[in-house]
Design a protein around this nucleic acid. Structure first.
Lengths: 342, 342
DNA sequence: CTTCTTCTGATGTACGTTAGTCAGAAATGG
DNA sequence: CCATTTCTGACTAACGTACATCAGAAGAAG
């Protein structure tokens, strides 16, 4: 049996095709009682509109805008590159992808760009969020204008965004602690945390999860307050070099953001005496080499391709009001050791 | 600019719509020279047939058959359940999913079921492979009949399958060794390997990767030959109990298949003296509890939902001869510690 | 140059939906 | 009960492709 069509619905509800169409597309001019009859028929038949036929008919093209941080961060550069290739493929699915770059960790600039997406009449926006009142305000405006918003990689708190696609950053932080704690087994000392900025939620959450498990399971390891390197190699290098000089008893480092090149420089300069164990994030050219050289012991990673693919599926479902499978947006944190590098 | 249509191609190639259609769908009755002109026009315009319109027109429904092992194995039961829910969703994409269960580790039964799928004129088959000449033969027949074949979870060697969806099992084995080796640091002894059957390629590959890294990086740990429990709790229990009695110096266990309930029973019976470290596969109800109780130290896991989703995308692309993104089928091995259980 | 075969073009219908027009029916108000 | 408003039905043309039919053109063979 093939699936029911509008014709079947019309027949069962004892109305004309036009009326079914009016109900289906929320046009006015149908009495409440008749609407009910139509809806009942749809439910009875298990009618689901054929999205392909519908889109074909209405010549629909989904306009999706990605708003992502600019700058030297390798991870974000990979994201931009990934979007390039996706743009071509997505056209097959009637999806047009645009990309805007904004300064990182800058709520105002992000909010301004979001407003621009609104002017451009996008159907949906996918953004790497920075926490700020202005951003939350801009997101509300977008949704009020009927534009769907999905946060990618870094979420917004208490936000009106339709969905989040990315890893569970609290869990990632906990995992990092579980690994780093075990790796440092038997040599108590201090743990340094290198963050990008406490303005982005993913970094905040990773720190939170990390500290939870560290305190609970590895009390012999003392946590230093995080240094904020802005994901820039030079800053990380400088801050970490100072920190290492100040605390010679650092046995482990958790790098929960970018700027890993700076981290490596600082470590190389400090010398290999009792090399601290290092857990980092994001498999980039730098971190991959660092793993192979034994400078990094583990790297936590989110698969950016899968995230982009998920974000596209989710935002299209949001636009079409199709229920979303809870698992679609949940990206697992991958763990790389030297042994399972791809 | 919207994408070009057959009309545009016809205009540019200076032929009629009918001729373009004949070329596009490989019907005969077009001179070679004319075919060339049409193809040139398509390339020049960057024409891509609109799959949605095409499917709408030809009323195509993709018939996909999943052939998976039957039996008490929780992991496979989850897979079956997952397929149930997918079956409903997939209908939206003109995809009809059928499921066949076959006895596990039985090449003959699998081959017979594959032939049945051929009779049923499926468009594609997704199978959890068992290594056997009969199976390879049946797969060849399917492909000769124009039926696409994708292997899921466990691959076929030198096979004619169109694609494999699952984790890199060699890498999974290496990862397991990397973890178990580090966990056993400082207490040399023997390592037990518990497999399901050496007839399925995923188990063979996991063992291979495990032994690679164990020999290379942790030579102080001696590997025992694997026991084959057929993924059945009772058998695993019996074999492992014997093994533990025979070798009191087992410090680590790698369980690369199913039957984890039996493993747990055996361990509980042996008592907690110097509890061996355990790395297992697949997050099921049993293994989750085992992690929480500290009986398991790590669980490697493949996300079956993602695998099913990927398999569907891939087999549809195979059917339509759409190029396949190499990353679509690559499922990452997820690592769960007690700290990052979902 | 004719006859026959092989190509090609023109045309129409269909797929399931959107979206419009217009006439006529039903409900509402007075 | 009539005038007026609000609903409803019948019809039509798209969207991009598939597929069938038939007439006519071009080419090959005689």
């Amino acid at each position: 049996m093939s699936r029911p069509t509008v014709h079947d619905v019309a027949r069962v509800a004892n109305v004309s095709l036009s009326t079914v169409d009016r109900v289906l597309n929320g046009r006015n001019g149908v009495r409440a009682a008749t609407q009910e009859r139509v809806r009942a028929a749809m439910k009875q038949l298990g009618y689901e509109r054929d999205l392909m036929a519908a889109n074909l008919s209405r010549q629909r093209i989904y306009k999706i805008r990605f708003v992502i941080p600019d700058g030297p961060n390798s991870f974000m550069r990979n994201l931009a590159a990934e979007l390039e290739t996706h743009a071509r493929i997505a056209l097959r699915d009637r999806t047009e992808i645009g990309v805007s770059l904004v300064p990182p960790f800058d709520g105002r600039a992000l909010a301004a760009e979001l407003r621009r997406a609104k002017e451009a009449a996008a159907d949906g926006v996918v953004m790497v969020a920075t926490e700020s009142a202005e951003v939350r305000q801009a997101v509300s405006e977008l949704r009020a204008a009927g534009i769907q918003v999905v946060t990618l990689i870094s979420d917004l708190s208490a936000s009106a965004r339709g969905h989040f696609v990315g890893i569970d950053n609290v869990s990632a932080g906990r995992t990092a602690a579980g690994l780093l704690g075990r790796f440092c087994a038997g040599r108590p000392g201090r743990i340094a945390i290198v963050a990008g900025s406490m303005l982005v939620r993913d970094h905040v959450e990773r720190r939170l999860g990390f500290e939870q498990v560290m305190h609970a399971e590895f009390p012999e390891l003392k946590l230093l307050p995080p240094i904020e390197g802005g994901d820039e190699a030079a800053t990380v290098d400088r801050l970490l070099t100072d920190l290492l000089r100040e605390h010679p008893d650092i046995v482990g480092i958790y790098s929960l953001g970018g700027g890993n090149r700076g981290l490596r420089n600082a470590l190389d300069r400090a010398g290999p005496d009792p090399r601290p164990m290092v857990v980092g994030h994001e498999l980039t050219d730098q971190s991959r080499v660092a793993l192979q050289d034994g400078v990094f012991d583990a790297v936590l990673q989110q698969d950016i391709r899968k995230e982009v693919a998920s974000a596209l599926i989710i935002i299209r479902n949001l636009i079409e009001a199709i229920p979303i499978d809870a698992h679609t947006g949940l990206i697992h944190t991958e763990i790389f050791l030297r042994d399972n590098l791809p």
